[in-house]
Amino acid sequence: MSDLLPDDLDLVSITQLRQVANQSPQPYRLHLQVESRIEKTTSAGSPFFEVKLVDAADSFIWRVFDNNPLFQDVARLARNTFIQLAGQWVEGKYGLEPRQVQWRPLADDEASALLLGDPELASRQHADYADITAFVSSMRDPRLLKLCQVFLERHGERFRRTGAARRNHHARRGGLVEHVAQMMRCAAAIAGVYPQLNRDLMIAGVLFHDCGKLWENAYVESGFVMPYNLTAEMLGHIPLGLELVNKLWRDLLEAPEAVGWTALEPASEVVRLHLLHLIASHHGTHEFGSPVLPKTPEAVALHHVDNIDAKLEMFRRGYAGSKELAPGIFEKFVPWPVNIVAPLPAVHLPPTESVP
């Protein structure tokens, strides 16, 4: 450790630390939450702890052996505790390893800031949510517009702390907001190229395609734990999404403005069915959990928009976290079946040159 006090060290996220652990000699501090603490035994019979520590975007296992001065402190460390770890960090045999560690509990304001993510992530998710509300506001169909607005009013807070998945893509607090925002940008662009697509239906389909994950992949209000629950386990996010949209739709039909919708074409019942079809078919095949296959242009487009964003997020994660086997070649990772290769950079011409 340097002569600096722990609170004077640079505060970094786990992801940022991974990028500098073997490159920069100075120590760092991290703000973290304890997800689990498991007591194990070495082959020689000595006890040690595996402590899973998480922040808004990443996690790692801290192994604390019985010769560590903090061993007894860690033995009393409760799940969901917010802590600061300060020390010299290296990439060891099992991943990130702190040396000369000092720790303390986080103050309430520090824990609240941690739940928002590092400044870059928090800023990105804030901008993504603003884009979602802007796309919704741009819709012309009053039924789909009102449906989306009511969803955001009733469930926006839960939406903002839900992950898009448990492991494979956008698997972090607020990840569903990132996924939906990028899908909306893509869907709007595709609708501009293919004007036969119903843009309002596409935007609504993006918002609701994974809305069942608010009960399948939601993080607890004050932490980075994504608990399992019986309802989500037995039904899954597609049936839950269908049920939620039907419930919101029934509520809307009782609203005063619904009286004026009876004269609209296409009829409200047809609009509802098309939206439900997008939710039901967005996985694309029976094999991946869709109860029906895509049967409309919007359903086909939504499935591919969803798949593109998920796959490109997996590439981003692979470049950030996978071992580089050779220049530009990165080790495969779950669920990607092969090694991945760095993308081709765009050409940068000198200012005096141009492409005809």
Rank of each mutant, 00 (worst) to 15 (best):
R199E: 07
E120V: 12
P256T: 04
L276F: 02
A188R: 10
I14M: 08
V245I: 11
P294I: 00
P105N: 14
T285W: 06
G174P: 01
N80A: 14
A191M: 04
R154E: 13
I340V: 15
D118A: 04
M1C: 08
P327V: 04
L293I: 11
Y219C: 11
A346D: 11
L278I: 06
V300G: 05
E91K: 15
D7P: 05
N339D: 14
G260F: 01
A122G: 08
K332M: 10
V177L: 04
L302F: 02
G156C: 06
E110W: 00
L235S: 13
H31N: 08
L96N: 07
R185Y: 02
L248D: 04
V136I: 15
E39G: 10
L115C: 03
L276N: 07
V347F: 09
N168P: 04
V20A: 07
V292R: 10
Y129F: 12
S268E: 11
L278T: 03
P69A: 00
R166S: 12
T15W: 00
V292P: 06
L252D: 03
S36T: 13
A78F: 03
N67L: 08
I279E: 00
L230F: 09
E39Y: 02
F60G: 09
F330N: 01
A75M: 08
I190L: 15
Q23C: 07
W215A: 02
G212E: 02
Q16L: 03
S281C: 13
N246T: 14
I279S: 03
L96Y: 02
P69G: 03
V206S: 05
L275M: 09
E331V: 05
T162N: 10
L9G: 00
V305R: 01
G117R: 00
K93Y: 08
Y28V: 06
P345A: 04
V177Y: 00
T81Y: 00
S137D: 13
H170T: 04
F60L: 07
D7N: 15
